[in-house]
Amino acid sequence: MVSFLKTWIGSFQEFLLLSGRAFTNLVRSPHYKDDIYLQMDIIGVGSVPVVLLTGFFTGGILALQMARALNTYGASSQVGAIVAITLVRELGPVLTAILVAGRNASGMASELGSMKVTEQIDAMRALATDPVQKLVTPRLIATAVMLPLLTAISDTIGLFGAYLVSTPLLHIISSSQYWSTSWQALQLNDVAQGLIKPFVFGIIIALIGCFYGIQTSGGTQGVGRATTSAVVSASIWIIAVTFVIDKIFVAMYSY
């Protein structure tokens, strides 16, 4: 137990050091702009199809379930409002982040892990390049910028999915009523936390993915372990941080 704790604390310390260096590099030269744009393309544009699909079906499922529950209380007209709040505040950011973690934290861990075990990271250092500056910071910037955008896309397509279920499919609400109740239900703080969360999740995903990649040891088996650990850790941290952000917003707005 003591040795497990010692190992965990040691790893956490390494993680904090890596994070510190990644953030410090934001204001230090050189800046690898091409790498940032490349990562934005891989992480952002590359994730659009999966985000579109899951966002659409999440909205549809929410509308199906809510329609039945709200009908019990004669409140079917509120389906747009409830779907909008649930999607924008919670499900959109969290589901999108978990999907991106599955796709990109694993990708970062396996790519950097492979580079580590084939001595490419040592080669980079020997060629007078800081691997954190070259590999971690561009991924950090790209994920933190792209995840809020992906979440906004997911929320929008989710609302559209819920609309298709509520109006053309179930006929429980008119089109104009659906969109007006959805729009009116959203407060500034809903949108704020709907964008702050993915920004924070983006940082978590990039740092955890890169951390497990850079720490990889033990050949190709080690790369597999690093990939799994990155996805599991990132997913857990996303849920835990959601709770913390929710608690802060609940305390701020007392609703």
Binding site: S114, M115, T118, E119, Q120, D122, A123, M124, R125, A126, L127, A128, T129, D130
Partner: peptide, 19 residues
């Protein structure tokens, strides 16, 4: 160390080439 590493060439066992 970077300026000194810039004056040193290092061949890694498997080449260490960037894939």
């Amino acid at each position: 160390l970077f300026p000194l590493r810039g004056r040193t060439g290092f061949l890694f066992q498997e080449g260490g080439l960037f894939d």
